[in-house]
Design a binder for these strands. Structure first.
Length: 290
DNA sequence: TTCCAGGCGTATC
DNA sequence: GATACGCATGGA
């Protein structure tokens, strides 16, 4: 890892990392893009960047910016603003999966034609290693919902508590007291998850070390957690990259390209492959509409 | 107005 | 075990 401490900032030159493709691709819901016109509000007036986001890992805030380098944006200068070296090494290196070589990963994936297209379509995707409880909550809220609304519900939740609520916070709530979130029928599922954690019936640390099928089964004892949400909690919250969430979009990918199953070159890393495929099929469809 | 969104619980066969 | 339907909410 090649980084410099510059005053209160951490600066690194990083390949395979694009903030839009990583922070706004449906794996995390608490990153907000900073409009360049409003950068003064973030004390960035003297700082030039191509794109920047503000967000959190659970309750640690971060302002992160990107300056593209070179003609084909193969690498970027990434700056973590107002971040101590300690927090960088303890939290963010892990969160942004900076120890994984995505160049090599994409080379492996690219032995398959569709995967090769998907990797080229969004070469700056990285898997975020999110907090277990944060990811579980997020994907309980995600069911039968769209991404802008998921973000809105989580935003209202965090604003209400002044932070991301703990499971103890939610365990003490009722469907009525959570009405401010406008989460609809999902509120009772959040409460059930929180109460099972409070009672010790569910322990996410234990689940993270179980074999995949046992972990799935344990998560699915929570009301509102079925196969898809369990898979997402495992992939995004516990970095179980062999978990493969199948939502409506990935179902389309499977029906269109992989009726025989996934190619061998993604075996063991299906979850990361899924992230490229999800982004590819969604944005390819969006282009059709334009 | 109807349909859809990173699904799941329940009823029914 | 498979299939059908309702579910809260809000944008298109």
């Amino acid at each position: 890892m090649n980084y410099k401490v510059c005053g209160n900032d951490i600066v690194l030159i990083q390949s395979d990392f694009d903030l839009d493709e990583t922070l706004d691709c449906g794996q995390a819901f608490r990153w907000e893009r900073i409009d360049k016109n409003s950068k003064n509000a973030y004390n960035l007036s003297k700082f030039d960047f191509d794109k920047a986001y503000k967000g959190y890992k659970l309750n640690t805030p971060l302002l992160i910016s990107q300056v593209n380098i070179g003609e084909n944006f193969g690498a970027s200068q990434i700056t973590l603003h107002n971040t101590s070296e300690q927090d960088f090494l303890d939290i963010w290196v892990d969160y942004f999966d900076l120890e994984t070589d995505y160049t090599r990963l994409k080379e492996e994936f690219s032995c398959d034609e569709i995967m090769s297209c998907a990797c080229k379509f969004a070469p700056g995707i990285r898997m975020l290693k999110q907090d277990k409880w944060e990811a579980l909550c997020s994907f309980i809220i995600s069911q039968n919902n769209n991404i802008p609304r998921i973000k809105g519900i989580i935003s209202r939740m965090c604003e209400h508590y002044g932070r991301f609520p703990s499971y103890e916070d939610i365990a003490g709530e009722t469907v009525e007291s959570l009405a401010f979130m406008r989460a609809g029928f999902r509120a009772k599922y959040l409460i059930d998850a929180a109460q099972k954690m409070a009672s010790g019936e569910i322990d996410l640390d234990d689940i993270s070390s179980m074999d995949l099928q046992s972990a799935r089964n344990s998560l699915m004892t929570i009301k509102g957690v079925g196969p898809k949400v369990a898979e997402c909690a495992l992939l995004y919250g516990m970095y179980r990259i062999d978990a493969f969430p199948i939502d409506v979009w990935i179902k389309r990918v499977m029906e269109e390209y992989y009726t025989e199953g996934l190619p061998d070159c993604v075996k063991g890393k299906e979850g990361i492959a899924q992230q490229y495929l999800f982004h590819y099929i969604r944005n390819r469809e969006n282009e059709k509409k334009d």
